[in-house]
Design a protein around this nucleic acid. Structure first.
Lengths: 149, 149
DNA sequence: TCATAATAAGAGTATATACACGTAATTTGC
DNA sequence: GCAAATTACGTGTATATACTCTTATTATGA
């Protein structure tokens, strides 16, 4: 049988948070599956890519850019360091630390870019370019509305 | 100083997965803050609300409706059971388990509905009704595109 | 200068998420 | 009727997320 169960009641069906989290689970799975051969999770791919384009990324810097709690970022960096993809060096200020990709980190990021591009393209086409652009715009709008930084 | 760092490079700025996750972090924080006095996380609120509107919710049933891995759902139910909000009873099939809210679960859900409504209203107004409706529609569209069920 | 405030970061704790693997119960097909 | 496939669920393990509390360093101001 296994009918497609629908959730009614406004508290579930209309909840902005629930719908965002649900879509995030679904989309993350698509990217995770595609990136699997590269050895990266989609979250790790984004983190490596963010470090690679930031000039002088510190923990706080990066956490603000990602709208991610600073302690979350620290925790997420652990497996990347253990895999030798990210290097942590002392910053100018003795309180800060500079993050950068190692040669190995650049390599794995480069490898993962291939399936990333495929997946991204597939999703944009699947939604339709206009709908995808609208979605991105609305996400950005929402983030800017609720994020104080 | 703390300049608003922007992330360029298509792999970050355009990534569907990254943008969804970022927005989810931001919005989840808004709901979590609002629901804090109720003692529920927004995820737990959604889960309790989902159980309350499903008739005969089993683990697999619910996990499909939420597009959440079955084992994730099992894990997420643990704190709800420990708090005495969710009751697990044997299903008709001896393999299945029925989930339902306890009296205490209904009470805490009811209490949390007040700040939920406020926050939801605030976010809809903040985005504008049309933009919010578009966003929800696109999330649903995307989920239906990538989700096999 | 020196006490205080602000900033940068880590550790403890707890929840959220899902994959791989394993077990029990039911269904299917011969 | 019974072996094999399917279904429902749990555990081990690992990553993602963020709050609270704490430490070290830098900046401020009287």
């Amino acid at each position: 049988m296994k009918s497609k169960s629908k959730l009614n009641s406004e508290f579930v069906a209309n909840c902005t948070c629930f719908n965002l989290r649900k879509a995030t689970r679904a989309i993350t799975k698509v990217f995770d599956d595609a990136l699997k051969p590269s050895g990266l999770y989609s979250t790790q791919f984004s983190l490596l890519a963010a470090i690679s384009v930031m000039d002088s990324a510190t923990i706080s810097n990066l956490s603000q850019a990602l709208i991610m709690d600073r302690t979350t970022l620290t925790r997420n960096l652990n497996p990347l360091q253990e895999n030798g993809w990210v290097e942590v060096s002392p910053g100018e200020d003795r309180r800060t630390k500079n993050l950068s990709l190692t040669k190995s980190g650049k390599k794995v990021l480069g490898k993962a870019m291939v399936p990333w591009k495929q997946t991204q393209k597939q999703i944009v086409e699947s939604l339709g370019k206009k709908r995808w652009e609208d979605l991105m715009g609305q996400l950005t709008f929402a983030v800017n509305k609720v994020n104080p930084y």
